[in-house]
Simulated assay, not measured.
Amino acid sequence: MEAPIGVIDSGVGGLTVVKEMLNRLPNEPIIYIGDDARCPYGPRSTQEVRQYTMEMASALSKMGIKMLVIACNTATAVALDEIREHFSFPVIGVIVPGARGAVKASETGNIAVLGTVGTINSGAYDDAIHALNPNATVYPLACPEFVPIVESGLYKSESASGIVAKALVGLAGKEFDVAILGCTHYPLVQHHIQAHLPDGVNIISSAVETVSDVEQMLLLKNSKRHSASEVAPIFYTTGKIEQFSPIVEDWLLIDQPDVRHIIL
Rank of each mutant, 00 (worst) to 15 (best):
M1E: 09
I5Q: 12
I5A: 15
S10Q: 13
S10D: 13
S10W: 12
G11M: 03
V12Q: 14
V12R: 01
G13Y: 13
G13P: 03
G13A: 15
E20K: 10
I33E: 11
D36S: 14
R44M: 13
S45P: 03
T46E: 10
T46Q: 14
T46Y: 01
Q47W: 05
Q47L: 08
E48L: 14
Q51N: 09
M56H: 04
M56Q: 02
S58D: 04
S58T: 02
G64K: 07
I65D: 07
I65M: 14
K66L: 02
K66I: 01
M67P: 04
L68R: 02
V69I: 14
I70S: 11
C72T: 15
N73T: 00
T74R: 09
A77F: 07
A79R: 06
L80S: 00
L80E: 10
D81P: 00
E85N: 15
F87N: 01
F89A: 07
F89L: 01
F89D: 09
V94G: 08
I95G: 06
I95L: 10
I95N: 01
P97H: 06
P97A: 14
G98C: 12
G98Q: 05
G98H: 13
A99M: 00
A99N: 09
A102Y: 07
S106W: 14
E107T: 11
G109C: 04
N110T: 08
I111F: 09
T116L: 05
V117M: 04
T119Y: 13
I120A: 12
S122C: 06
G123A: 08
G123F: 06
A124W: 11
A124H: 05
A128T: 13
A128N: 05
H130S: 06
A131V: 00
P144R: 02
F146C: 14
F146G: 13
V147I: 13
P148M: 04
S152M: 06
G153V: 05
G153F: 06
K156F: 10
E158K: 08
E158Q: 11
A160P: 07
A160L: 15
S161R: 09
V164R: 11
A165R: 15
G173P: 06
F176H: 07
D177N: 03
V178M: 15
L181A: 09
T184Y: 13
T184G: 10
H185W: 05
Y186R: 05
L188I: 10
I193G: 07
A195K: 07
D199N: 09
G200Q: 06
V211T: 09
S212V: 02
V214F: 07
E215C: 08
E215F: 05
L218G: 07
L219F: 15
N222P: 09
N222C: 07
N222M: 05
S223N: 06
S223L: 07
K224A: 03
R225K: 00
S227I: 01
A228I: 14
S229P: 00
P233A: 02
I241S: 02
E242W: 10
F244S: 01
V248P: 01
L252R: 04
I254C: 10
D258Y: 00
R260G: 04
